[in-house]
């Protein structure tokens, strides 16, 4: 333990308004703690005042409408993984949830936390990009919505202002019928950080790709929706040619190499496209 916990303050607001007051006064939101508590232990948690969100039941749960599915930002991955609704309608998210850490971390880590932590390797992110998720962001000023693919802007930079919290994630219902894939490539079979991941889904009509969404993890400074790749494949006859990969900008780090990430990203796409044919 490399932090002196007596130097940190933590409060647990009883409701959203109280939480937003704290957050607007510079208190750092703390959800499942699977990222922030790790930073704390390493002595790297800069914020000294934290607002624990565990009492905010209004930010939990899965709501299913005809057109949309709404996920509370505090929904834990264990729930996403085991929810029949998510499994049926958002299968890529269910698969990703099942591969985030071990059972004990899936019981704690939240969807909103995974997005707000903004790791390029965040495992829920590619699925949400593929599903055209929209974030509902709240503050004392009110509520606004941001298409998730516009949320990340750079390494750990996102469209989330001081005083704001991610409240809910809205997803279209009905994407479960698309043909999709989620593939996480990590440093070992399970309980590991992603080196490269792909979420993709397509609607195939009469031997052509009618609609397609592609998103990668850990190949850019943030989870990457690949619009150019999608454009190249939209309308393509199957079997489709590989699209251009110039949107990807992977790096070398101690987990992997840029070369490997790019090569595997191509291979994963090749496998996905082959599965459509």
């Amino acid at each position: 333990m490399r932090a002196n916990v007596s130097r940190y303050d933590l409060r647990a607001p009883d409701g959203l308004t109280e939480a937003l007051h704290l957050v607007s006064n510079g208190w750092k939101p703390l959800a499942g703690g699977t990222d922030l508590m790790v930073l704390l232990e390493a002595g790297k948690l800069a914020e000294r005042r934290l607002a624990g969100l565990w009492k905010l039941d209004e930010l939990r749960g899965i709501e299913v409408g005809d057109e949309t599915i709404t996920l509370g930002a505090l929904t834990i991955f264990a729930e996403l993984r085991h929810s029949p609704v998510v499994g049926l309608n958002l299968p890529l998210l269910a698969s990703a949830a099942a591969e985030i850490g071990g059972v004990a971390n899936q019981n704690r880590a939240t969807l909103g936390g995974n997005l707000a932590n903004a790791s390029p390797a965040a495992d829920a992110a590619p699925a949400l990009l593929v599903y055209d998720a929209e974030l509902e962001i709240v503050s004392l000023e009110g509520t606004r919505r941001v298409p998730y693919h516009q949320f990340h802007r750079g390494y750990k930079e996102m469209d989330l202002r001081a005083g704001e919290l991610i409240a809910r994630i809205h997803l279209p219902n009905g994407r479960g019928r698309w043909q999709g894939c989620w593939r996480k490539v990590a440093t070992r079979a399970a309980q590991a950080i992603t080196k490269v991941s792909l979420a993709a889904a397509a609607r195939v009509e009469e031997g052509r790709i009618a609609e397609i969404r592609i998103a990668y993890g850990a190949v850019a400074p943030y989870p990457l929706r690949c619009h150019r790749m999608e454009a190249a494949l939209r309308g393509a006859a199957l079997p489709a040619q590989l699209p251009p990969f110039d949107e990807l900008a992977p790096i070398d780090d101690f987990r992997s190499t840029a070369r490997y990430r790019l090569k595997v990203a191509r291979n994963l796409m090749e496998t996905f496209l082959a599965s459509l044919a």
Binding site: E41, G52, W54
Partner: peptide, 21 residues
């Protein structure tokens, strides 16, 4: 996983749970 305990029926890693929670 050496520190896992059951909290309110769920398995959690106790090194990542704040006392207040």
């Amino acid at each position: 996983g050496s520190c896992v305990v059951i909290m309110d029926g769920k398995l959690v890693v106790s090194c990542l749970v704040p006392a207040l929670e």
